[in-house]
Design a protein around this nucleic acid. Structure first.
Lengths: 224, 224
DNA sequence: ATTGTATATTTTGTATACAAAATAAGGAAT
DNA sequence: ATTCCTTATTTTGTATACAAAATATACAAT
């Protein structure tokens, strides 16, 4: 069923940022870093004041964030930071599992040796952080690893969807790494990924990645 | 690897529409129905006049559409209707193939008999239109069929992503049904889906659906 | 004719102002 | 005290106004 992608990859141009974009980024960070907790009402007057912009770009930013699924706009009743139900998280992880399974298979077919090498380097970095017990850097490298796998799969839509879901799950997954035992098992799974990568065994890689994501459900489900 | 979803399905409330939403819907229709061709610049002054709204809700609608991938906002240079490159379409179909493969597997596990029956009824409807040569109604039922498969898979994220991609491909897929031979083969594939559905054979259903989508690439690729 | 440059016009981005809706506050009646 | 209703106050939605940027136009110099 698989077709090898008939298109090469290409670079993207850098665009200038409008106020709207900056505001969207700022709010996104506030949400992801937990300064705006899920369920919190988004106080326009306050935030507009705090960010020093007028309501027009601010509200445009809200539309963007709503479309991304980070907030919910209730007509005439204000916006709130979206609170993920267990159902939401499960469905996102289930989907992500399949997306990354696909990505895993595809990179083994499509990525260059150098690119695979880059992934393995990233993996080594992660291991180092793990051994030294540096949770935050590990976490960031982990995000980077998964993003890059999706990136290198050579399917832009896949990358976009993965990025969106990963962003929305960011906070929750961070919490999931709290228990040491959880971290150990996650690292073990990453070791398996690295092994599959070295062999360019797409089937195995996909399998491990999917399993990894479904295990993530077990690791995070009590934190919701 | 598969877990059966630990959550039941539930109904959703109906929300009132803001002006912004109405405008977004209107423009979406204009794009999907081809009144605003891909690549076309979106003339704010003209459309705002035509729709009888001010620029504020109009521009908010643009943000929403941009987040959905239907238009592209180039800062200070206006918005254009997004033109899909062959790469874009391929990547969307490749992804869609995997999403619907997953959906096919899941409905066989999770959907009720009545729901599967509903799908088969829809299929019969489609056949009738096919035999009578009514392309447009067939096309609409087809969209409905694929949407409902994703709906019944019981994974909200999957449904959302499928809906988004399907919407963006709407026009192009319509064009793909032009040649009679193409239509014949698409219907043949749908017959296979129905057969798998009747047996609740998720593996087979997923397989056919994925194949169906990859064949769609062949059916549409010359229309881009 | 072509290129370049200066000026006018249009288009886009943001702020403010006003209207409508929702929420909160203040009593009166039970 | 609790419920209901009425009236402020706040919050949200939309329109308009102004600023900045981009594009088009006109004209001169080569």
């Amino acid at each position: 069923m698989e077709l090898s992608s008939p298109f090469p990859m290409e670079a993207v141009a850098i665009e200038k940022q409008t106020l709207h974009d900056q505001v969207a980024n700022r709010i996104r960070d506030l949400i992801i870093e937990g300064h705006l907790a899920p369920g919190t009402r988004i106080d326009e007057t306050m935030l507009v004041e705090q960010l020093g912009v007028s309501r027009t770009p601010f509200r445009e930013a809200l539309r963007t964030l709503a479309a991304e699924g980070l907030i919910i706009i209730r007509p005439s009743k204000g916006s709130i930071v979206r609170k993920l139900t267990p159902q939401d998280v499960f469905s996102m992880l289930e989907l992500l599992a399949h997306l990354e399974k696909l990505a895993g298979r595809l990179i083994c077919e499509r990525a260059s040796d150098a690119q695979i090498d880059g992934l393995l380097k990233l993996h080594e970095e992660m291991l180092k952080r793990y051994r030294e017990g540096d949770r935050l850097p590990y976490y960031k490298l982990n995000q980077e690893f998964h993003s890059r796998v999706s990136e290198l799969a050579g399917n832009e839509s896949l990358r976009d969807v993965q990025a969106n879901i990963q962003a929305r799950l960011k906070r929750i997954r961070f919490l999931g790494n709290s228990k040491p035992a959880y971290w150990d098992s996650a690292v073990a799974e990453h070791e398996q990924m690295a092994a599959a990568l070295r062999k360019r065994d797409g089937e195995a890689l996909g399998q491990v990645m999917a399993q990894h994501l479904m295990n993530t459900w077990d690791r995070v489900k009590d934190h919701i």
